[in-house]
């Protein structure tokens, strides 16, 4: 009987419950046995659980216990699934990467915390990676299909990334007819724009499509909402924010820059008041600048 473990690290706490509810996954679980899942009453000492076939891990490593559990479960598990964007890039919880333990807890509780928050992938090698906040139903079905192959034994030869790494814009329903000519007319608050159905960037709305992997089938775009980057960087993107700055530099007000000159461009760029929030909502722990900032604190 296949033995499953559910390991929830610091996060919003919902990813694995959602996964459990998915009919395809639920079917697999019913044919097997869940040996660890404290949130649903299945507790036990990982040292005594024995071998686990598949461990689903969601969340980030913030507490020292997170790290201990993570390492234990990697050791005893045949296949580890990093489930949800938090576990791969830090996710929304990763926004706290620059907070020192003292800013989060008092007294003896400070000692429970790691100096920063990091995704699971910074500490262990998972076998299957499933990004998404939350992962879509389609991706869950893909996960079920993949797991079926390994249920009776064996493990993937190399890491399986469950979404295609291509950039979101490639097949975007709002893709401009001539992307070479696309221009960002300014920087606008999405709440202030009467959406005309064109490419968000062409409407002055920051959409992370140019730097984000497509694993959602343009879910937000189809809901008339710009991409927030929740699937993590597309193939070839080194750092979502820095690459996005590169793109903005190329296409912002390009037909008017000779007229606006530097002061005019600066005035427009000042409208982007919170670049960190826009660029790194889901990947802050992975930002190159985070590494630099942490190094200054002596953390890295």
């Amino acid at each position: 009987m296949t033995r499953y473990a559910f390991l929830e690290l610091t996060s919003c706490g919902d990813c694995l419950s959602e996964l459990y509810m998915n009919p395809e996954i639920n079917k697999l679980l019913e044919e097997g046995e869940i040996v660890y899942w404290p949130a649903y009453g299945i507790v036990g000492d990982p040292e005594e659980i024995g071998e686990v076939d598949v461990t689903f891990i969601a969340g980030t490593v913030r507490t020292r216990r997170d790290l201990e559990e993570l390492e234990k479960f990697r050791r005893i598990s045949r296949i580890v699934v990093a489930y949800g964007t938090c576990s791969i890039y830090g996710g929304l919880n990763g926004l706290t990467a620059l907070l020192e333990p003292r800013a989060i807890a008092d007294g003896e509780y400070v000692k429970l915390l790691m100096p920063t928050v990091k995704p699971v992938t910074d500490y262990i090698e998972p076998d299957i990676l499933v990004p998404g906040c939350p992962p879509t139903r389609e991706v869950m079905a893909r996960l079920a299909k993949t797991l079926k192959k390994y249920i009776s034994g064996g493990k993937p030869e190399k890491k399986i990334f469950l979404i295609p790494g291509e950039v979101l814009c490639k097949h975007c329903p709002r893709r401009p007819s001539n992307p070479e000519k696309a221009e960002m007319p300014g920087i606008r608050d999405p709440n202030e724009v009467v959406d005309d159905g064109r490419c968000f960037i062409e409407q002055g709305i920051l959409c992370l499509g140019p730097v984000t992997a497509n694993g959602c089938n343009h879910l937000c775009i189809r809901f008339n909402h710009p991409c927030m980057g929740c699937m993590g960087p597309a193939r070839g993107v080194v750092d979502q924010g820095l690459n996005m700055i590169g793109s903005i530099g190329s296409i912002l007000l390009k037909s008017r820059e000779v007229k606006l000159l530097f002061p005019g461009l600066a005035k427009e760029l000042d409208k982007l008041r919170d670049p960190m929030g826009y660029f790194y909502r889901y990947t802050l722990p992975k930002a190159m600048l985070t590494k630099l900032a942490l190094r200054r604190r002596g953390v890295e």
Binding site: R62, T63, R65, T96, L98, I104, Y109, L112
Partner: peptide, 9 residues
């Protein structure tokens, strides 16, 4: 014991 500090950011 799960400390996050999300409100701080």
């Amino acid at each position: 014991l799960e400390k996050r500090g999300l409100e701080k950011v």
